[in-house]
Design a protein around this nucleic acid. Structure first.
Length: 324
DNA sequence: AACTTGCCCAACCGCGCGCCT
DNA sequence: GAGGCGCGCGGTTGGGCAAGT
Protein backbone atom coordinates (compact mmCIF):
# COMPACT_ATOMS: atom_id res chain seq x y z
CA UNK A 1 0.00 0.00 0.00
CA UNK A 2 3.01 2.22 -0.08
CA UNK A 3 2.95 3.58 3.41
CA UNK A 4 5.40 6.18 4.42
CA UNK A 5 7.82 5.04 7.07
CA UNK A 6 6.66 6.41 10.36
CA UNK A 7 10.04 7.89 11.19
CA UNK A 8 10.56 9.71 7.93
CA UNK A 9 9.59 13.03 9.39
CA UNK A 10 12.44 15.45 9.54
CA UNK A 11 13.56 16.29 13.03
CA UNK A 12 12.61 13.01 14.61
CA UNK A 13 15.33 11.61 16.76
CA UNK A 14 16.73 8.13 16.30
CA UNK A 15 19.20 6.04 18.17
CA UNK A 16 19.69 5.33 21.83
CA UNK A 17 17.27 6.80 24.29
CA UNK A 18 18.48 9.26 26.88
CA UNK A 19 17.48 9.28 30.51
CA UNK A 20 15.51 12.44 29.88
CA UNK A 21 13.51 10.81 27.12
CA UNK A 22 12.86 7.76 29.25
CA UNK A 23 11.64 10.00 32.00
CA UNK A 24 9.29 11.84 29.70
CA UNK A 25 7.88 8.62 28.35
CA UNK A 26 7.34 7.16 31.80
CA UNK A 27 5.80 10.36 33.06
CA UNK A 28 3.42 10.34 30.17
CA UNK A 29 2.42 6.72 30.61
CA UNK A 30 1.95 7.28 34.31
CA UNK A 31 -0.46 10.08 33.82
CA UNK A 32 -2.11 9.14 30.52
CA UNK A 33 -3.36 5.64 30.34
CA UNK A 34 -5.68 6.23 27.46
CA UNK A 35 -3.83 7.13 24.35
CA UNK A 36 -2.44 5.77 21.14
CA UNK A 37 1.22 5.31 20.40
CA UNK A 38 1.15 7.67 17.48
CA UNK A 39 0.08 10.48 19.76
CA UNK A 40 2.51 9.65 22.52
CA UNK A 41 5.61 11.46 21.28
CA UNK A 42 3.70 14.64 20.60
CA UNK A 43 1.88 14.62 23.91
CA UNK A 44 4.91 13.51 25.86
CA UNK A 45 7.13 16.10 24.27
CA UNK A 46 9.39 13.59 22.59
CA UNK A 47 11.05 13.94 19.23
CA UNK A 48 10.48 10.27 18.49
CA UNK A 49 8.03 8.35 16.43
CA UNK A 50 5.30 6.44 18.19
CA UNK A 51 6.78 3.19 17.11
CA UNK A 52 10.04 4.00 18.80
CA UNK A 53 8.18 4.91 21.99
CA UNK A 54 6.24 1.68 21.95
CA UNK A 55 9.40 -0.32 21.42
CA UNK A 56 11.22 1.48 24.16
CA UNK A 57 8.39 0.87 26.57
CA UNK A 58 7.72 -2.75 25.74
CA UNK A 59 11.33 -3.81 25.49
CA UNK A 60 12.92 -1.80 28.22
CA UNK A 61 10.81 0.45 30.39
CA UNK A 62 7.92 -1.84 31.18
CA UNK A 63 8.04 -2.45 34.92
CA UNK A 64 7.22 -6.12 34.76
CA UNK A 65 10.27 -7.03 32.75
CA UNK A 66 12.72 -9.57 33.98
CA UNK A 67 16.31 -8.74 33.36
CA UNK A 68 19.32 -10.91 32.99
CA UNK A 69 20.13 -14.02 31.09
CA UNK A 70 17.54 -16.66 30.50
CA UNK A 71 17.81 -19.56 32.89
CA UNK A 72 18.49 -23.03 31.49
CA UNK A 73 14.87 -23.92 32.01
CA UNK A 74 13.72 -20.83 30.23
CA UNK A 75 16.08 -21.69 27.40
CA UNK A 76 14.65 -25.18 27.24
CA UNK A 77 11.18 -23.72 27.16
CA UNK A 78 12.20 -21.45 24.31
CA UNK A 79 13.59 -24.42 22.40
CA UNK A 80 10.47 -26.45 22.96
CA UNK A 81 8.25 -23.60 21.92
CA UNK A 82 10.44 -22.81 18.93
CA UNK A 83 10.09 -26.41 17.81
CA UNK A 84 6.35 -25.95 17.91
CA UNK A 85 5.94 -22.38 16.79
CA UNK A 86 9.01 -21.52 14.72
CA UNK A 87 10.27 -17.95 14.73
CA UNK A 88 7.13 -16.57 16.28
CA UNK A 89 8.99 -14.76 18.94
CA UNK A 90 6.07 -12.85 20.32
CA UNK A 91 4.15 -16.08 20.81
CA UNK A 92 7.15 -17.65 22.47
CA UNK A 93 7.62 -14.59 24.63
CA UNK A 94 4.03 -14.78 25.75
CA UNK A 95 4.93 -18.04 27.48
CA UNK A 96 7.80 -16.47 29.36
CA UNK A 97 6.58 -13.83 31.77
CA UNK A 98 8.77 -10.79 31.93
CA UNK A 99 10.61 -11.62 28.75
CA UNK A 100 10.18 -9.74 25.52
CA UNK A 101 10.15 -11.11 22.03
CA UNK A 102 13.20 -9.03 21.25
CA UNK A 103 15.06 -10.45 24.20
CA UNK A 104 14.20 -14.01 23.31
CA UNK A 105 15.03 -13.44 19.68
CA UNK A 106 18.39 -12.02 20.61
CA UNK A 107 19.08 -14.83 23.03
CA UNK A 108 18.14 -17.37 20.43
CA UNK A 109 20.42 -15.87 17.83
CA UNK A 110 23.38 -15.38 20.14
CA UNK A 111 23.22 -18.32 22.51
CA UNK A 112 20.76 -21.07 21.77
CA UNK A 113 21.54 -21.39 18.08
CA UNK A 114 25.17 -22.03 18.87
CA UNK A 115 24.38 -24.46 21.62
CA UNK A 116 22.12 -26.46 19.36
CA UNK A 117 24.67 -26.51 16.55
CA UNK A 118 27.29 -27.68 18.99
CA UNK A 119 24.98 -30.52 19.90
CA UNK A 120 24.56 -31.34 16.25
CA UNK A 121 21.03 -30.05 16.04
CA UNK A 122 19.74 -27.84 13.31
CA UNK A 123 18.27 -24.80 15.06
CA UNK A 124 15.88 -24.26 12.18
CA UNK A 125 14.36 -27.70 11.98
CA UNK A 126 15.29 -29.04 15.40
CA UNK A 127 16.41 -32.17 13.61
CA UNK A 128 19.91 -33.62 13.67
CA UNK A 129 22.23 -31.65 11.41
CA UNK A 130 22.65 -33.30 8.05
CA UNK A 131 23.44 -32.26 4.51
CA UNK A 132 20.28 -31.36 2.68
CA UNK A 133 19.14 -33.65 -0.08
CA UNK A 134 17.23 -32.60 -3.19
CA UNK A 135 14.17 -34.31 -1.79
CA UNK A 136 14.66 -32.62 1.52
CA UNK A 137 15.41 -28.96 1.00
CA UNK A 138 16.34 -26.82 3.94
CA UNK A 139 13.45 -25.20 5.66
CA UNK A 140 12.63 -21.68 4.84
CA UNK A 141 13.44 -19.21 7.57
CA UNK A 142 9.82 -18.45 8.19
CA UNK A 143 8.59 -21.95 7.96
CA UNK A 144 7.39 -23.54 11.12
CA UNK A 145 9.64 -26.48 11.71
CA UNK A 146 8.23 -29.93 11.62
CA UNK A 147 7.24 -31.15 15.00
CA UNK A 148 9.69 -33.75 16.00
CA UNK A 149 9.01 -36.41 18.53
CA UNK A 150 11.43 -35.06 21.04
CA UNK A 151 12.67 -31.50 20.90
CA UNK A 152 16.36 -31.25 21.56
CA UNK A 153 17.55 -30.58 25.03
CA UNK A 154 20.31 -28.29 26.08
CA UNK A 155 19.97 -29.39 29.65
CA UNK A 156 22.89 -31.70 30.28
CA UNK A 157 21.20 -33.57 33.05
CA UNK A 158 17.87 -33.77 31.41
CA UNK A 159 16.29 -37.14 30.88
CA UNK A 160 12.93 -38.17 29.48
CA UNK A 161 11.27 -37.48 32.73
CA UNK A 162 12.65 -33.97 32.83
CA UNK A 163 11.56 -33.42 29.33
CA UNK A 164 8.11 -34.55 30.19
CA UNK A 165 8.10 -31.99 32.94
CA UNK A 166 8.93 -29.30 30.43
CA UNK A 167 6.10 -30.48 28.25
CA UNK A 168 3.77 -30.42 31.19
CA UNK A 169 5.09 -27.02 32.10
CA UNK A 170 4.26 -25.69 28.66
CA UNK A 171 0.83 -27.23 28.80
CA UNK A 172 0.31 -25.78 32.23
CA UNK A 173 1.47 -22.43 30.97
CA UNK A 174 -0.93 -22.57 28.12
CA UNK A 175 -3.88 -23.68 30.16
CA UNK A 176 -3.31 -21.59 33.23
CA UNK A 177 -5.37 -18.50 33.64
CA UNK A 178 -4.50 -16.67 36.75
CA UNK A 179 -2.39 -17.38 39.73
CA UNK A 180 -2.59 -15.00 42.57
CA UNK A 181 0.43 -13.99 44.53
CA UNK A 182 -0.83 -16.29 47.21
CA UNK A 183 -0.99 -19.16 44.76
CA UNK A 184 2.49 -18.43 43.63
CA UNK A 185 3.91 -19.44 46.94
CA UNK A 186 2.18 -22.74 47.27
CA UNK A 187 4.54 -25.62 47.97
CA UNK A 188 3.51 -27.29 44.74
CA UNK A 189 4.79 -24.42 42.74
CA UNK A 190 7.84 -24.03 44.83
CA UNK A 191 8.88 -27.48 43.83
CA UNK A 192 9.17 -26.46 40.23
CA UNK A 193 12.84 -26.13 39.61
CA UNK A 194 13.06 -22.92 37.67
CA UNK A 195 16.25 -20.99 38.10
CA UNK A 196 15.63 -20.68 41.75
CA UNK A 197 19.34 -20.30 42.20
CA UNK A 198 19.09 -16.98 40.50
CA UNK A 199 16.46 -15.50 42.71
CA UNK A 200 15.30 -16.80 46.06
CA UNK A 201 11.68 -17.44 46.69
CA UNK A 202 9.74 -14.91 48.64
CA UNK A 203 6.51 -14.96 50.48
CA UNK A 204 3.91 -12.32 49.94
CA UNK A 205 4.73 -10.64 53.18
CA UNK A 206 8.27 -10.27 52.00
CA UNK A 207 7.30 -8.13 49.10
CA UNK A 208 9.24 -4.99 49.51
CA UNK A 209 7.95 -1.60 48.92
CA UNK A 210 10.55 1.04 49.39
CA UNK A 211 10.41 3.21 52.40
CA UNK A 212 7.69 2.51 54.91
CA UNK A 213 8.10 -1.04 56.10
CA UNK A 214 5.01 -0.94 58.29
CA UNK A 215 2.86 -0.73 55.22
CA UNK A 216 4.77 -3.27 53.24
CA UNK A 217 2.62 -6.17 54.27
CA UNK A 218 -0.42 -4.11 53.49
CA UNK A 219 0.99 -3.58 50.06
CA UNK A 220 1.58 -7.26 49.74
CA UNK A 221 -1.93 -7.99 50.84
CA UNK A 222 -3.30 -5.53 48.39
CA UNK A 223 -1.27 -6.88 45.58
CA UNK A 224 -1.87 -10.49 46.45
CA UNK A 225 -5.55 -9.98 46.38
CA UNK A 226 -5.46 -8.18 43.13
CA UNK A 227 -2.33 -9.42 41.49
CA UNK A 228 -3.26 -11.57 38.63
CA UNK A 229 -0.28 -12.02 36.42
CA UNK A 230 -0.20 -15.73 36.11
CA UNK A 231 3.00 -17.57 36.37
CA UNK A 232 4.04 -21.11 36.11
CA UNK A 233 7.30 -21.13 37.87
CA UNK A 234 8.72 -20.32 41.18
CA UNK A 235 11.39 -18.12 39.76
CA UNK A 236 8.81 -16.08 38.01
CA UNK A 237 7.07 -15.45 41.22
CA UNK A 238 10.20 -14.54 42.95
CA UNK A 239 12.17 -12.66 40.39
CA UNK A 240 9.47 -10.91 38.51
CA UNK A 241 9.30 -7.27 39.42
CA UNK A 242 12.11 -7.64 41.87
CA UNK A 243 15.08 -5.40 41.61
CA UNK A 244 18.32 -4.78 43.33
CA UNK A 245 19.68 -1.37 43.89
CA UNK A 246 23.30 -0.45 43.93
CA UNK A 247 23.60 -1.45 47.56
CA UNK A 248 21.92 -4.76 46.78
CA UNK A 249 18.78 -3.84 48.57
CA UNK A 250 15.84 -5.65 47.13
CA UNK A 251 12.92 -3.73 45.78
CA UNK A 252 9.76 -5.47 44.92
CA UNK A 253 7.40 -4.29 42.27
CA UNK A 254 3.93 -5.68 42.67
CA UNK A 255 2.10 -7.05 39.68
CA UNK A 256 -0.20 -4.99 37.64
CA UNK A 257 -3.79 -5.76 37.37
CA UNK A 258 -4.59 -5.38 33.77
CA UNK A 259 -7.89 -4.44 32.30
CA UNK A 260 -10.60 -6.89 31.50
CA UNK A 261 -11.00 -9.81 33.77
CA UNK A 262 -7.46 -10.79 34.52
CA UNK A 263 -4.30 -10.42 32.62
CA UNK A 264 -3.14 -13.67 31.19
CA UNK A 265 0.42 -13.96 30.04
CA UNK A 266 -0.23 -17.30 28.54
CA UNK A 267 -3.20 -16.62 26.42
CA UNK A 268 -1.73 -16.39 22.97
CA UNK A 269 -4.53 -14.28 21.70
CA UNK A 270 -4.41 -11.95 24.59
CA UNK A 271 -0.78 -11.29 25.06
CA UNK A 272 -0.78 -7.66 24.40
CA UNK A 273 -1.17 -5.96 27.66
CA UNK A 274 -3.95 -3.65 26.72
CA UNK A 275 -1.89 -0.89 28.09
CA UNK A 276 -3.68 1.97 26.53
CA UNK A 277 -7.03 0.76 27.66
CA UNK A 278 -5.89 1.09 31.16
CA UNK A 279 -5.22 3.92 33.45
CA UNK A 280 -1.78 3.07 34.69
CA UNK A 281 -1.83 5.60 37.42
CA UNK A 282 -4.66 3.75 39.09
CA UNK A 283 -2.63 0.59 39.31
CA UNK A 284 0.70 2.10 40.10
CA UNK A 285 -0.62 3.62 43.22
CA UNK A 286 -0.70 0.10 44.58
CA UNK A 287 3.00 0.54 44.89
CA UNK A 288 2.86 3.88 46.50
CA UNK A 289 1.48 2.45 49.68
CA UNK A 290 4.03 4.44 51.60
CA UNK A 291 1.93 7.46 50.89
CA UNK A 292 -0.31 6.17 53.61
CA UNK A 293 0.28 8.00 56.81
CA UNK A 294 -2.85 7.15 58.70
CA UNK A 295 -3.14 3.44 58.31
CA UNK A 296 -5.31 3.42 55.26
CA UNK A 297 -3.35 1.21 52.97
CA UNK A 298 -5.69 1.77 50.09
CA UNK A 299 -5.22 5.49 50.14
CA UNK A 300 -4.04 6.84 46.87
CA UNK A 301 -1.16 9.10 46.29
CA UNK A 302 -1.89 12.11 44.21
CA UNK A 303 0.20 12.26 41.15
CA UNK A 304 1.47 15.76 41.31
CA UNK A 305 5.18 15.53 40.80
CA UNK A 306 5.96 12.40 38.83
CA UNK A 307 9.64 12.37 39.67
CA UNK A 308 9.33 10.81 43.09
CA UNK A 309 6.87 8.38 41.60
CA UNK A 310 9.38 7.26 39.10
CA UNK A 311 11.94 6.84 41.76
CA UNK A 312 9.60 4.60 43.65
CA UNK A 313 7.83 2.85 40.88
CA UNK A 314 10.63 2.17 38.51
CA UNK A 315 13.43 1.03 40.74
CA UNK A 316 14.80 -1.05 37.92
CA UNK A 317 15.25 2.04 35.88
CA UNK A 318 16.57 3.93 38.79
CA UNK A 319 19.17 1.39 39.66
CA UNK A 320 19.65 -0.44 36.47
CA UNK A 321 21.59 2.34 34.97
CA UNK A 322 23.92 4.83 36.48
CA UNK A 323 22.28 7.63 34.67
CA UNK A 324 19.22 7.17 36.86
C1' DA B 1 49.32 0.44 24.64
C1' DA B 2 47.23 -0.07 20.26
C1' DC B 3 44.70 -2.60 17.29
C1' DT B 4 41.57 -6.35 15.80
C1' DT B 5 37.98 -9.50 16.37
C1' DG B 6 33.86 -11.24 18.15
C1' DC B 7 29.88 -10.83 20.99
C1' DC B 8 25.78 -8.76 22.75
C1' DC B 9 21.65 -6.28 22.57
C1' DA B 10 18.98 -1.95 21.96
C1' DA B 11 16.96 0.04 18.29
C1' DC B 12 15.56 0.44 13.54
C1' DC B 13 13.24 -1.05 9.25
C1' DG B 14 9.83 -2.93 6.41
C1' DC B 15 5.98 -5.75 5.96
C1' DG B 16 1.48 -7.76 7.09
C1' DC B 17 -2.76 -7.59 9.46
C1' DG B 18 -6.89 -5.61 11.19
C1' DC B 19 -9.83 -1.80 11.56
C1' DC B 20 -12.11 2.12 9.77
C1' DT B 21 -14.09 5.14 6.26
C1' DG C 1 -13.81 -3.33 -2.49
C1' DA C 2 -10.19 0.15 -2.20
C1' DG C 3 -7.44 2.93 0.32
C1' DG C 4 -5.62 4.93 4.59
C1' DC C 5 -4.01 4.33 9.10
C1' DG C 6 -2.12 2.35 13.39
C1' DC C 7 -0.03 -1.34 15.47
C1' DG C 8 2.60 -5.54 16.08
C1' DC C 9 5.94 -8.74 14.43
C1' DG C 10 10.22 -10.62 12.71
C1' DG C 11 14.61 -9.64 10.53
C1' DT C 12 18.52 -6.83 10.56
C1' DT C 13 21.83 -3.34 11.92
C1' DG C 14 25.30 -0.93 14.32
C1' DG C 15 27.44 0.82 18.45
C1' DG C 16 29.55 -0.40 22.75
C1' DC C 17 32.28 -3.48 25.14
C1' DA C 18 35.38 -7.32 26.30
C1' DA C 19 38.71 -10.56 24.97
C1' DG C 20 42.47 -11.72 22.21
C1' DT C 21 46.75 -10.62 19.66
Amino acid sequence: MGRQPCCDKVGLKKGPWTAEEDKKLINFILTNGQCCWRAVPKLAGLLRCGKSCRLRWTNYLRPDLKRGLLSPHEEQLVIDLHAKLGNRWSKIASHLPGRTDNEIKNHWNTHIKKKLRKLGIDPLTHNPLSTPTPQQPQNDQNQVPQQITKPPSIMPEENDHDHQNIEEEVIALESSNTISLKDMTTPELETIDFCTDDVPLIDPYEILVPNNSSTTSAAATTSSSSACCSSSSSSDHSSKNKFLDQDHHEWQFPDFEWPGTTFDYYNDDNNNMGLWDYDLSSSWDLIIINADHDGDSTKKLDIVDPDPLINYQCPRMVFDQDRW
